[in-house]
Simulated assay, not measured.
Amino acid sequence: MSTETYLVEGMTCGHCAGSVEREVRAVPGVASAIVDLAAKTVTVTTASVVEGESIAAAIAEAGYAFAGRA
């Protein structure tokens, strides 16, 4: 397992956080995704290799901006 933390721009509430978590968890290979709304991050634990581009695409699908690794 591997864990990475990514910066997310545009989240302002619990609904935002939930949307990001749901989209990122749907990426194949992702075991968990936990948003820290105050820090504007999502911490992703993967069970297999997952490219950062897949995480960025999931964040964009949720309607927010991927801002790189934390």
Rank of each mutant, 00 (worst) to 15 (best):
A57W: 13
G18H: 06
V24C: 07
G18P: 04
T41M: 06
A67L: 12
A26Q: 08
G68A: 02
T46H: 08
S32T: 05
T12K: 11
R25W: 00
T43K: 07
C13H: 14
G52I: 11
G14A: 09
E51H: 10
L37T: 07
Y64Q: 15
T12N: 12
I55S: 08
G52E: 10
A31L: 02
S32P: 00
M11G: 03
T43I: 05
V44F: 00
V20S: 05
D36L: 03
E61R: 15
A58T: 01
V50C: 07
H15W: 04
A47L: 10
H15L: 12
R25D: 00
V27D: 08
M11P: 00
V20R: 04
K40H: 15
T41Q: 11
S48Q: 14
R22E: 14
T3M: 12
A47Q: 13
I55M: 09
G29W: 03
A60Q: 15
F66C: 08
S19M: 13
R69N: 14
V27P: 01
F66S: 09
E23H: 04
T41H: 05
A39R: 13
A70N: 13
V30T: 05
G14Q: 01
A31H: 03
V20C: 06
R22Y: 04
V42A: 04
G14E: 02
E53C: 07
S2E: 15
V30M: 03
E53G: 13
A33T: 01
E53F: 09
L37K: 02
T41Y: 05
V27M: 12
A38C: 02
S48F: 03
V8P: 01
A33C: 06
E61I: 01
E53T: 15
D36S: 09
A26T: 10
V30I: 06
A17D: 02
Y6S: 04
P28S: 14
T5D: 08
K40M: 13
E4M: 10
G10Q: 13
T45H: 07
L7P: 05
E53L: 15
E21F: 04
A56P: 07
E21L: 08
I34K: 11
A70S: 14
I34T: 14
A62D: 11
A57T: 14
S54V: 00
E4H: 12
I59N: 06
V44R: 01
R25C: 01
V49M: 00
A26H: 09
P28F: 05
G29P: 02
T46I: 09
A31R: 06
V49Y: 06
T41F: 11
G14Y: 01
I55H: 12
G10M: 10
A31V: 00
E4P: 06
M11Q: 06
D36I: 07
I59R: 04
S19Q: 15
A17L: 02
T5F: 08
T12Y: 09
T46V: 13
Y6E: 12
A56D: 13
G68M: 10
